[in-house]
Design a protein around this nucleic acid. Structure first.
Lengths: 243, 243
DNA sequence: AGATAGATTTTGGTCAGACCATATGCTACC
DNA sequence: GGTAGCATATGGTCTGACCAAAATCTATCT
């Protein structure tokens, strides 16, 4: 197949040559034409292969790099990467950052978290295996020991919730959890608080776990909703009243 | 602030100048330094403002365009855009394409859909307002009339589910629904089927609505799970047995 | 022979200047 | 006053060059 012919051929108005090249390379990466870790041809090779200038090739390379499909380093040929769910969801953050700056945007996001975690708690109450329950117990204990140490508490807090995201066994859920933590955390990192707040959050976790252990989906969902709604009250208080 | 100074200063190894410029412009867009619809300065202006070559400016521009923060047209200065949730999620589709090609990847995605819609059905049964119920009724009726017309049925099918995504009043849910439809549809578009399949899916919708109207969350969730699980059986059958 | 240090080559990052295609806007003519 | 045509602005592309970092090769030393 003559690639340059093909690329020059379809004269979609306004379409950059680099876009066509990027699309072509992206498809080759997705279809296995390039394996993970493999190195892409050098820019000077690609410009010959596609019959375009180096600028066009570079613009395509940069597009792929922005998508996370390749890694670029000075002096190196680009390395092929195949982003997983976490990386993919991470990229969304860059796009919607402006939607999550005001109180309403953060609330929309937080509301989906409450909704999802309530459903996860319900799921755990119905389907969690014994090893999952043990994980939850251990995470709760670690969380209890961190009461009073703000940064450590946050860490163990997230770890407790993370277990719930792992229980369904679908890699998409942990990726979503990571996104929640990264996007939402920055909004309450600056919060001053004492051990009493930690104590309250710990109590919330405890209630959730108790309901799960009792195999009571309704209570588990309710406990999680109560816990996260209470947490939201503090996030909300950190926002300027105008927004 | 002397931008060129700043940009040349932090010599983070491997960092492209265009990345720094893109980040700077992206922040100005998000912070309202540029309003939606406004036009960015010309490339030749930006190269002077940042003290870099036009290639560097162009690479930054292309990065922003890929993120959907600006629109570029030949002969036009770039136009500032602020992507909403739907556009953002759209962009992710490019990234996870390779994760949604084999059966396992599609199942992971479909499983989250079952999980989410089951929770949405539960929510609707508990909180749907009268106008929501009326919307559901109307959507179901339209869906019934489309039985036998495959493409029209798919359309009204999606429309019925879309109502459920709208009920919580959070714009993130409809965006997710759009993503599901776009990412998953292509895997069963090619499916041959008769009116009997439409009839089955319609019956599923009907059962869901009945449970919601009866304000029975458990039944609503159960009906939705049954409906989507049945739908999955057909998607699954379209995959090569090897994957 | 193997390891190490230095020279050469590869390769991405940047710059400069030019030309083309398209959109915009001005100007002169009707 | 409206319209056609010309000048201008602007994005898209090309060519060729230079720099910096990494990789590779080579010669030297142990």
């Amino acid at each position: 197949m003559d690639q340059s012919e093909k690329l020059h051929g379809h004269g979609a108005i306004g379409a950059r040559r680099s876009d066509a090249i990027a699309a072509e390379l992206a498809q080759m990466i997705q279809n296995g034409g390039f394996q993970e870790g493999e190195r892409l041809p050098a820019e000077r090779d690609l410009m010959q292969r596609y019959g375009v200038s180096r600028a066009a090739v570079r613009e395509a390379i940069i597009t792929l790099a922005n998508r996370g499909l390749i890694e670029t380093r000075l002096g190196h040929r680009p390395i092929v990467r195949k982003p997983d769910y976490e990386i993919a969801i991470d990229k969304v953050g860059n796009l919607v950052g402006h939607l999550v700056v005001d109180r309403k945007g953060v609330w929309n996001l937080f509301e989906t978290r409450i909704f999802l975690e309530a459903a996860l708690a319900r799921w755990a109450a119905k389907h969690a295996r014994r090893d999952h329950l043990e994980e939850l117990r251990a995470a709760l204990e670690t969380n209890r020991e961190a009461i009073g140490n703000s940064s450590l508490f946050d860490q163990t807090d997230a770890a407790f919730h993370a277990v719930l995201y792992r229980i369904p066994g679908n890699p998409i859920y942990p990726a979503i959890h990571k996104a929640y933590v990264e996007w939402l955390t920055q909004h309450w990192r600056s919060m001053r608080r004492g051990a009493d707040i930690d104590q309250m959050n710990y109590a919330g976790h405890e209630a959730v776990l108790e309901a799960i252990l009792a195999r009571d989906p309704d209570s588990a969902e309710e406990a999680m909703r109560r816990h996260l709604t209470a947490a939201w009250e503090f996030v909300r208080s950190t926002f300027p009243s105008s927004n």
